[in-house]
Amino acid sequence: MDDLASFLRTRRSRVDPAAAGIPTDSRRRVAGLRREEVAHLSGVSVDYYVRLEQGRATQPSDQVLDALARVLRLDDTERGHLFRLACQRRRRAKAPGRRVRPELLRVLDLVPDAPALIMNHRLDVLAGNRLAGLLFGRPIPGLNTARHLFLEEDERGLYADWEQCTLDVVGHLRLAAGHYPDDRRLAALIGELAMGSDRFRRLWARADVRARTHGRKAYRHPLVGLLELHQENFALPDESGMEMVVLSATPGTPAWDGLRLLAGLGTEERQPAPSDGQTAEYRA
């Protein structure tokens, strides 16, 4: 229950006591709420809440979790994460192990005007269309966007909003770790990122969770310049943990023209579509 304990501590430290109806003065030295204040506002004993934060209490009830989510002012994503962490010992989800279906590869090829990718919960890019390969400037199979973002210094300039992207990626990996606590490959990735990046270590310690399903994504491509794209994430409906990510541009905008230019520049260097052999070694 260490993940649950850490999550509770970080969220407790962020609640404004005044917003929770607790008088404060200049002598207060605690950031956020005290443990006994959370216990009182949640209707649980101080001893029980202390044991939760120490990882010594197991299987808190849904009623207790609901109360804690309310007191700690969790949003929907954080609330879901709290419940998953609390239920890890009762119901541990196995990491998905499915290959990318050939039908999905055909779907990628039906999106010719936008970079389109299929990613798993570890942010491994399992497949992508031709424009996705041109955007990243490298073969798609084998790319992990978390490593690309944090560990490959030469590639950092591709991300116009690098700091925001790091927040999104760490928040996503926190959610994934809550979904799949027994995924050794995910744990190894998190350890690799923590060893190689000071920023990753700092952000991971905050225990933030994020579920970004759409929004602006900007890239500075070395050949065509700034591309301000719109990202849509489509969770695949087979419980594989995979998502299809499409990065589109509004027709008539500079980003639209940039994608057309990028597609034209890559005409003579078309990357072959991922073969069964390429995708088979990358499991979701």
Rank of each mutant, 00 (worst) to 15 (best):
D76C: 00
L41V: 11
R29Q: 11
R34E: 08
H40L: 15
L52E: 01
L82S: 05
R28V: 06
A57S: 13
D62V: 12
L72Y: 00
A69Q: 00
R35F: 08
E36R: 10
V46M: 07
V64H: 00
Y48M: 14
R56A: 03
E78P: 07
R56M: 07
A31D: 12
D25G: 14
T24Q: 15
G80C: 03
Q63H: 14
H40N: 11
E78C: 02
S61P: 02
T58E: 14
S42V: 10
E53P: 05
R70W: 01
H40I: 05
R84Q: 15
V30Q: 05
Y48R: 07
D76H: 12
G55R: 04
R27L: 11
Q54L: 09
D75R: 07
R35H: 09
H40G: 10
S61T: 13
D76R: 15
V38W: 01
A57L: 03
Q54Y: 08
L52N: 01
D62H: 13
R34C: 08
S61V: 09
L52F: 08
R34T: 07
Q59F: 08
R73T: 13
E37Q: 04
L33F: 06
V38N: 02
G43E: 09
H40W: 12
R79D: 08
G32R: 00
P60C: 09
V50I: 15
R28M: 02
V71C: 04
S45W: 10
G43M: 11
G55W: 04
A31M: 13
V44N: 00
E36Y: 06
D76S: 14
L65F: 01
E53I: 04
G43Y: 12
L41R: 12
L72A: 06
V38Q: 01
V50L: 14
A69I: 03
Y48H: 14
D47N: 13
Y48E: 08
V71L: 06
H40C: 07
Y48P: 00
T58Q: 14
R73P: 01
D76V: 13
G55A: 10
G55L: 02
V38S: 05
S61M: 11
R28G: 01
E53V: 07
A69S: 13
V71M: 07
G80N: 12
R79A: 11
G32Q: 02
G80T: 06
D76K: 12
S26M: 11
A39R: 03
V64K: 02
D66T: 06
A67H: 08
Y48I: 05
R28N: 06
R35T: 01
L41M: 10
A57Y: 05
L74M: 14
G55E: 01
F83K: 10
L65P: 01
D62K: 11
V64A: 15
Y49A: 06
Q63M: 13
V30M: 08
T77D: 14
R51M: 09
R51Q: 15
R73S: 15
S42A: 15
A67I: 01
R29T: 12
S45M: 11
E37H: 09
S26Y: 12
L68D: 00
S61W: 08
H40K: 11
E78F: 01
R28T: 07
L52K: 02
D25N: 15
Y49H: 00
L68Q: 00
T77R: 05
R56Q: 13
V71W: 00
A31H: 13
T77F: 02
A67Q: 10
T24M: 10
V44G: 04
H81E: 10
L74W: 00
A67M: 08
Q63K: 14
